[in-house]
Write a protein that binds this DNA or RNA. Structure first.
Length: 399
DNA sequence: AGGTATTCACATGAAACTATTCTCTGAGTTAGG
DNA sequence: TAACTCAGAGAATAGTTTCATGTGAATACCTGT
């Protein structure tokens, strides 16, 4: 009944935010701080495109949140503006290879590029792969032009399939008569190129750049600049920005995390009607981000994976670490009881490895000598979190 | 005692299988002329 | 006769199974002292 009041209040009280979009990861700033040199270098490498010559292929490394994507997008944007003004036939294409069910296979990657060229009716499946290549060729090769193909998170592409895709991509140019394609790969795995086919390696990374992490001071400046536009003046208590950037600098200078942290802290402060963002808000925000991340990954897991996790949760109060075999036994028992089909131990082994990758569990392979070799699994969550996850799984599997 | 050889309990890899989704094709069907 | 329907063939893809091979070190076994 005081719902109305609530909404009245909600509208009346002013938010700490003026423009939250500045703190979202989709935001592209006017100016990329501390990346001037690198941007200049990339610009040098890509500039020939403006004269409709094929630039060198480029490979960009750097950890998450070091501004790789941002810088590339920034450059592509200004290049396409100039190109539009002077009518230069350049086509920048940005594709994130990580996106599930969008561009994480060869077929879908090409299909996605074709979509970028404006042909939207590409079937999601059903065509042979070379057919889709043919569509692509006929679409691109209609006129003389330079395609700047940016492949973000390119390592995801090779992880699933081999490096054959990349080989095909580097080979495309020889199939084209008029158009030229420059490949720009972005990867946050610094050793990515090392286990690649040498032919691919040499042709893909004609040029290489490494994005170093930001240091704490730089992150502070970045935060301050974003915060300036995003929040009302004086919405942030002194020390908050400093602490926020210290958090991020501790984690290899991830600017994106710092910005997320600040935004969530702002949201929390807003929700409890506080007039300022304080350091406790920041701490809460860190917890919230962490817990949201875990809850998110757990809920998005397939049923069988959840079942395995459930088995681990059942085991966890008993003793410290447990082994694959024990987990499998419990898993099989629970599955049978809930009338799910029981997967092989081979599969469970892979699922456990996946969980390890996701950071949901800690697993390491140990040898118990005479008593075999196995994964030693432990769960690094506090009891609260465990309970929460257990409930989530029970609900989603209806156990 | 010191040195090998075994052995366990899985890990890891490769290939094949299953099920689902989607296109394309051509045969058969239908409705209108 | 043109338009429509529908089954079947072929692809891509995700998830899984089957089969095969690999593996680190605690034990068992041996050997010479």
């Amino acid at each position: 009944m005081d719902m109305n009041n609530f909404f009245e209040n909600y509208l009346e009280r002013d938010s700490l935010f003026i423009n939250k979009s500045l703190l979202l990861s989709s935001y592209l700033p006017e100016e990329v701080l501390f990346r001037g040199d690198l941007i200049q270098e990339i610009a040098n490498i890509l500039a020939p495109a403006l004269r409709v010559e094929k630039p060198s292929n480029l490979f960009v490394y750097g950890k998450t949140g070091t501004g790789k994507t941002l810088s590339l997008k920034y450059i592509l944007k200004s290049m396409s503006e100039i190109a539009k003004k002077r009518d230069i036939p350049i086509k920048p294409v940005y594709i994130n290879c990580k996106l599930k069910r969008v561009a994480d296979t060869e077929y879908r990657l090409i299909a996605q590029i074709i979509k970028e060229f404006g042909k939207t009716d590409v079937p999601a499946t059903g065509l042979p792969t070379d057919e889709i290549y043919n569509i692509f060729y006929s679409l691109v090769d209609t006129k003389k032009q330079v395609v700047l193909l940016v492949l973000d998170e390119i390592d995801q592409l090779t992880k699933k399939m081999g490096d054959g895709i990349l080989y095909n991509l580097t080979r495309i140019n020889s199939e084209l008569k008029n158009a030229q394609i420059a490949l720009i790969g972005i990867s946050n795995n610094l050793v990515f190129a090392e286990n690649l086919d040498p032919r691919v390696q040499s042709s893909l990374s004609e040029e290489e750049l490494i994005f170093p992490p930001y240091n704490a001071v730089q992150i502070q400046d970045i935060l301050r600049k974003r915060a300036q536009g995003a929040f009302r003046p004086d919405a942030i208590e002194p020390g908050v920005i400093e602490k926020c950037s210290a958090y991020a600098a501790r984690e290899h200078g991830d600017a994106r995390r710092a910005i997320d942290l600040l935004r969530v802290a702002g949201e929390l402060a807003d929700r409890e009607n506080s007039s300022k963002i304080t350091i406790p808000h920041l701490d809460d925000a860190e917890d919230k981000i962490e817990s949201d991340k875990i809850v998110g990954t757990v809920t998005s897991q397939p049923k069988q994976h959840q079942m395995v996790l459930y088995a681990i949760l059942l085991l966890t109060p008993s003793k410290r670490p447990f082994f694959t075999g024990e987990i499998y036994d419990v898993y099989a028992k629970v599955c049978k009881k809930a009338h799910y089909n029981v997967l092989t131990q081979r599969r469970i082994s892979d699922i456990l490895a996946e969980f390890d990758m996701l950071g949901i569990i800690n697993a390491k392979i140990i040898s118990k000598g005479r008593y075999g070799r196995t994964r030693e699994v432990s769960l690094s969550l506090d009891d609260d979190m465990k309970r929460k996850i257990k409930e989530i799984i029970e609900k989603s599997l209806q156990i």
